[in-house]
């Protein structure tokens, strides 16, 4: 079972430190999303990376639509990895939708985690009532329909196109193929779970101390979401960075690392 889950989720462990730092990537990518950030922590942490079930180099056969019909399935995976590696006092880092999964895991087993780092979290993408998640129901339905039609043809279409790209050596090929590998049906299912779930109550209930990193110009998680976090997450320190996009760990890795370090050192 232990080796099973490590293989299933393509878990990689590195770093010189003892204190575990577990990174969970978000929708649409794999663990290579952390490549500009994780090495910075490897010198004094035990860095654990993995691919969400259904993404990257995980075992796609293991993607059970019932188990992963809610983020609880992904939260259980986080707990199972902690158990398999006997991780304690862990700093759990989750990006975007995995920030919500991280909160679910920490609410279930607060004893396993010392800190949570939530990168561009969004408990709910949908505008509902007074809450501004950023998207109307019609817009999200449009997205899901496009994915159902497999129009963007992500996944399968990407990989073959690497051939002939200048500067794409063997290393880049390996990276790209892993990075882009997603079964379109799984991507569509995960998109539904990601964009239609509402975990505001779970985030509000969090007791493990957390840092929420927010970009001030994020087309996916607008500033209204950061405002909601400030007002409703007593456990969280909300830090807004002047960064464009939804992936500060990719576009502004130094600043992201600095913010996380400052929080960890201060706490």
């Amino acid at each position: 079972m232990t080796t099973d889950i490590l293989r299933r989720n393509n878990v990689t462990v590195s770093g010189a430190g003892d204190r575990p730092m577990l990174f969970a990537h978000g929708f649409g990518c794999d663990q290579s999303m952390w490549q500009f950030v994780a090495p910075e922590f490897a010198r004094d942490h035990k860095v654990v990376l993995y691919d969400l079930t259904g993404a990257g180099n995980s075992d796609l056969e293991a993607y059970d639509r019932q188990r992963y019909a809610t983020l609880d399935g992904h939260a259980d995976d986080i707990l199972a990895i902690c158990e398999a590696l006997n991780l304690k006092d862990t700093i759990l880092v989750g990006h975007s939708v995995s920030a919500s999964s991280s909160v679910l895991a920490a609410n279930a087993r607060p004893d396993l985690f010392s800190r949570l780092i939530l990168v561009s979290p969004s408990p709910c993408f949908l505008n509902t009532g007074d809450y501004r998640g950023g998207f109307s129901r019609e817009e999200l339905d449009g997205l899901l329909q496009v994915m159902d039609e497999n129009y963007l043809g992500w996944a399968r279409q990407m990989a073959p196109n690497i051939a002939g790209q200048a500067g794409g050596g063997p290393a880049a090929d390996r990276l790209t193929q892993s990075f882009c590998r997603t079964d379109p049906d799984i991507a569509s299912h995960f998109a539904r779970v990601t964009f239609l779930s509402d975990h505001r109550d779970d985030l509000a209930r969090l007791r493990v101390p957390a840092l929420a990193l927010h970009c001030d110009d994020d087309p996916i998680a607008p500033m209204t979401v950061a405002g909601w976090l400030k007002d409703n997450m007593p456990a969280a320190t909300v830090s807004v960075m002047q960064v464009t996009g939804h992936c500060p760990h990719l576009v502004a890795p130094e600043e992201t690392v600095r913010e996380i370090r400052r929080y960890l050192d201060g706490g």
């Binding site: 978000g26 929708f27 649409g28 990518c29 290579s32 999303m33 490549q35 500009f36 975007s96 992500w154 690497i162 500067g167 794409g168 880049a172 990276l175 790209t176 990075f179 882009c180 994020d218 087309p219 996916i220 996009g245 939804h246 992936c247 990719l250 576009v251």
Partner: peptide
């Protein structure tokens, strides 16, 4: 945001 920008950063 979820795919293209990451791809640009990671693979160029």
């Amino acid at each position: 945001q979820t795919h293209v920008m990451p791809m640009l950063r990671i693979q160029g």
